[in-house]
Design a protein around this nucleic acid. Structure first.
Lengths: 160, 160
DNA sequence: TAAAATTAGTTATCAATGTTAACTGTTACT
DNA sequence: AGTAACAGTTAACATTGATAACTAATTTTA
């Protein structure tokens, strides 16, 4: 049965599903595009670290990207293993690890950024500058709307 | 360190990441909201099946929702196990399974649809009707833009 | 029309990620 | 000083995604 792109169910699906579909395709293509840099995922943490100079902790990354801190440990292990970041204990608060890019990461960051920029351009083809700005505004609004919804995750209890 | 929502890095992140964050929060909240119906995920296939009366195959579902057919088998197993759908061999092409909603599913569909509608309303709060229509138009455009990008997935070879 | 290729769906395996719990070490609160 | 809270880690398990190999049915093609 052929796929009917104009089927009316498009608007009846959960908004999250529509975005999830885009997300999956987007990262599949981005991953392939940047594979040759020796890193095929976890680009976002690098960008956050780069832009949050000298102040980026793991907790901050988790909050910014909405990735739980346990998964974040594994992601950062991956980035450390690939020689892209280092963890340094914060002298001001020895619980925290300040994350920093290695020289190797700094070297390939321009390529990563331009790869992402190209992907964004591809994804947004057909939208003019005004429409693109509007889309980002919408995304920001929606992000804030869903940010504090009660989810399924339960607070972890500390047992003494 | 407090989370700065107005940090400029927002626009430097991959578009897929921004949407992925929304997706995660959205489904976390939706899952909690509809938990009492005895189904906490996989709402989208039900909607596609309901709207594609008598003609919905597994392959069609995979294409519509961009979920690979192997995962789709598991998702449909879940829905069958929960008594929400049945698989019926298509007499016209005995390779295909036509998916149908059970009476139980038909009964709770209105609640699922209104739950999704409420979630969409919550997510889109602050956007007027025009803006919402514009957002859907943008999503449709972006979906088409990324649909046929070369991803990481490789065609499965058939060994004889 | 018989052989070959394709299609729909399944099972198995492994990798990546999400979730929950329990833990260490550090800092803040009272 | 004792308790609570916080940042990060480890472990165990569930879910999902990717790849390969397979069966059965259908279509292509030589």
């Amino acid at each position: 049965m052929p796929l009917d792109k104009n089927h009316p169910l498009f608007e009846h699906l959960p908004l999250g599903r529509l975005m999830g579909k885009i997300t999956k395709k987007y990262f599949g293509a981005l991953s392939k595009k940047l594979d040759h840099l020796g890193i095929d995922r976890h680009f976002s943490p690098l960008i956050v670290i780069a832009e949050t100079k000298e102040k980026c902790t793991q907790q901050y990354l988790s909050d910014m990207l909405n990735i739980d801190k346990v998964s974040m440990v594994r992601i950062l292990d991956y980035l450390v293993k690939h020689g892209l970041i280092i963890r340094a204990v914060n002298p001001a608060d020895r619980r925290e690890h300040i994350l920093q890019l290695t020289p190797k990461a700094k070297k390939i960051m321009p390529k990563i950024l331009s790869g992402i920029s190209d992907m964004n351009k591809t994804a947004l083809k057909g939208l003019d500058k005004n429409e693109q700005a509007l889309l980002y505004k919408f995304i920001e609004t929606i992000t804030k709307n869903v940010e504090n919804l009660p989810g399924k995750k339960v607070d972890i209890k500390i047992k003494q």
